[in-house]
């Protein structure tokens, strides 16, 4: 048990270090801006006075390491600074949008994960049948398609041809849960289409991999039915890679929302990040980039820890 705990601690320490390195990278990246940040952003309006004022406002007159620690310290305490574009506190803007992004990713995960595992199981049970081949063709193309293509096909079918769902997913706090679900149905479906393909292929591969082990041969020789073998004998042993791929896809979802949010004009963090990048609103880019990266690192960490916990070989050290 000690060995496992040590492994997990090591992984968590590595995760924290990665986060630190990423925050440093984000910070240094902005430092490395060719020329002066103030001049670059003000552009045509750069006069000595405005540049000076801008530098004091962004605290650019302090040395770099002091600014880094001040930035991280404020970040941890929830103060994300002010947007350059409209001067509003970033925390206000981001909080609501981040919740919206999580809602979108969460709602997708809620029906995509069970669906992917069931499809993967079925494909493994009826391996090499027409059902398996159809599913494998559909999922291969799902992985190959750009998200916006899937999104526009869905809009064309379900929003333009038959008006079932809105093509613009605007949500606000006054809406009931049902109204929100209706509004985000199309973006969820788009995201699900992409992640289900990936998760389902991995589930199928994991189960087929386990099926070649000797204890499955034994179960077959005992005369147990194929479905029972897969559900009772193979699935528990394939759980570790399946959990891993599920959490990795959650991490993908959190980042994958960016493109989908832009297609459906959804008020999420991804949309904000893209806007901020095109306006070169650096404090907003830094803050939302760090939040995205932190979520991603955290989910990757969870995936590794869970797969360590669910792997019986690591639980009982020799």
């Amino acid at each position: 048990m000690n060995k496992l705990a040590a492994m997990i601690t090591k992984r968590i320490v590595f995760g924290v270090l990665t986060l630190f390195a990423i925050s440093l990278l984000i910070f240094v990246g902005v430092e490395a801006l060719p020329g002066d940040l103030a001049e670059a952003i003000l552009g045509q309006n750069a006069t000595p006075e405005t540049i000076q004022a801008f530098r004091t406002e962004l605290k650019l007159d302090l040395p770099a390491h002091e600014r880094y620690f001040a930035w991280i310290n404020a970040f941890v305490h929830g103060d994300l600074g002010k947007s350059l574009a409209n001067g509003r506190p970033i925390a206000e803007v981001i909080g609501w949008r981040f919740a919206n992004s999580l809602l979108l990713a969460g709602a997708t995960a809620l029906f995509a994960i069970p669906l992917a595992i069931i499809l993967g199981l079925l494909a493994a049970i009826y391996r090499d049948s027409w059902f398996d081949k159809c599913i494998s063709m559909v999922t291969l193309s799902a992985i190959s398609l750009p998200e916006f293509f899937v999104a526009y096909i869905l809009i064309a079918l379900l929003s333009v041809q038959i008006f079932l769902f809105p093509s613009i997913s605007n949500i606000n706090d006054q809406m009931s849960v049902f109204q929100k679900m209706h509004a985000i149905f199309l973006p969820c479906l788009t995201l699900a289409f992409v992640v289900v393909g990936h998760m389902m292929r991995m589930t199928r591969a994991a189960i087929i991999n386990v099926l070649s082990s000797p204890f499955i041969e034994m179960a077959k020789l005992k005369g147990i039915g194929r479905k029972r073998i897969i559900v009772k004998h193979a699935l528990p042993n394939a759980l570790s890679p399946i959990i891993n791929v599920v959490v990795l896809n959650l991490a993908y979802l959190v980042v994958g929302v960016v493109v989908v949010e832009v297609v459906f004009v959804y008020p999420g963090l991804g949309q904000l990040l893209v806007d901020a990048v095109s306006k070169r609103d650096l404090p907003v880019v830094q803050a939302s980039g760090l939040i995205f990266a932190a979520t991603y690192v955290f989910l990757n960490l969870t995936a590794d820890v869970l797969s360590m916990l669910s792997n019986p070989k690591l639980r009982n050290p020799r």
Binding site: V30, V258, V277, V285, V297
Partner: peptide, 21 residues
């Protein structure tokens, strides 16, 4: 490489593009 890969690619690219244009 571990550090770069721990960072979601799209977010990384967006950040660099916002700085470099």
């Amino acid at each position: 490489v571990d550090i770069i890969m721990a960072f979601p690619t799209l977010i990384f690219a967006l950040m660099v593009l916002s700085v470099m244009g």
